[in-house]
Write a protein that binds this DNA or RNA. Sequence first.
DNA 1: TAAATAGTGTCTTTTAGACATTATCAT
DNA 2: ATGATAATGTCTAAAAGACACTATTTA
Lengths: 251, 251
Amino acid sequence: MSDRPSHQQYASEAEYLAQYDIHRYELPLSSVDVAIFSLLDSQLQVLLVERDAYPQRGRWALPGGFVDLKRDDSLEATAMRHLAAKTGVAAPWLEQVASFGGPDRDPRGWSLTVLYMALLPASPTLPHIEQVRDARWWPLDEALVLQLAFDHRELLLAARERLKNKTAYTALPVYVLDAPFSLPDLQTAFELLLDAPLEKKAFRRRIEDAGLLEDTGLSRPSPGRGRPAALYRPKAASRAHQFSRLLGQEG
Amino acid sequence: MSDRPSHQQYASEAEYLAQYDIHRYELPLSSVDVAIFSLLDSQLQVLLVERDAYPQRGRWALPGGFVDLKRDDSLEATAMRHLAAKTGVAAPWLEQVASFGGPDRDPRGWSLTVLYMALLPASPTLPHIEQVRDARWWPLDEALVLQLAFDHRELLLAARERLKNKTAYTALPVYVLDAPFSLPDLQTAFELLLDAPLEKKAFRRRIEDAGLLEDTGLSRPSPGRGRPAALYRPKAASRAHQFSRLLGQEG
DNA sequence: TAAATAGTGTCTTTTAGACATTATCAT
DNA sequence: ATGATAATGTCTAAAAGACACTATTTA
């Protein structure tokens, strides 16, 4: 960050700051939006909010909003605030995806949005979403054919792309499941986030060899029929782990 | 992007926009900074600018500055503008790294910076840098022990980390070299950006099998002594290529 | 011919893919 | 016993690591 040529008329930084007027220059409208993903009804879903204020009133949008300079200590804090407002929970995974800016994104003027992506298990959000009324989970493919507000379709695609890419070399899907979960559960989560089928043996080897899960000793109580699956819980290590080869693509 | 509760007092979006005052809410100061990397004297170097205006006058900083709402059509345009101002060239590689925001980054107030990373061959920038006087190339390790302006050390580390990570699965180092270049040149570039030694055979196999380079038919004119190296030029395909395995780490 | 640098051959290691087989549960 | 789902065994394939070897240049 440097600034416009305002040069040497001040004797000290304190003197400069004393006269500095933050409204001297036009600033972009700055906001934070969050693409919140989860699994529901065996589908990858995203949480959208129906706008009840102008502009773009009535359209579905990613949860988000302006940075609150009084309350937000960071961009991540802004993201967490907007996420909690709609879901009622703190997401176990939240990561910044990218920022988008331009004069035509928002009719109010030049605007800049920092896009985050969040993963969480859906079930703890359902009671709160019921209450807020303006939010609901949408299957991703349905969300992508809606007329979303602003350029939110582009943002959603960017977040979905990041999700897919990272699923190929991390254990991110762990964060859309409620623990404890089985390896077949986890494989299904990987397949939905990757949008590709995986070989059972290769998948299990990869996860087991990485040592990211802790065996709970439990097994799935009532599957219907078939052998019960062992239940696991993610270890703290799973948060940072990166594999050195990509999963599931031809490449 | 949604907005603060300002609700239903307007009959249409046009009416809402007509009364909308962009100065009604406090906005973050928004800027774009660029970590510009190249190879010079067989070292990874970064271009820094000495601030001649408050705040942080006299400290070295990443090139960058405020978004100009009149001139900039996008964040990338802002980055390119500031990059060209200091280097005199357009970078063959420019990518967004991350955004940073908070109340204490800048003494003027809550500020938000979008960080970009650029790669370019250093030689074409040298005459222009000579002219602008306030910019110079710094070896990265020296830059990291300077007292940089604002939180630019943190930004620089984030960009360097991105550079290292992507070098492990792309052909990014191609963009710090002047074409044509030899495979030993390219291996050296990879090693400097990765900060790790590479096996010659494995490296050549990887690059050759990927088909990212075009043989110019030339060889290096005057190496000193030793067998001359064949010279290559990157194909357009090298821009997007991603390898499915990581280079150079134990993992 | 010696030194230096470029470039190749080839064996090992790691990890994913394919797919057959065995294990454990409900009915 | 049958069917269903979980879990394992084992062979193959792709690509990186190790490192010895050959090739081409200048002095």
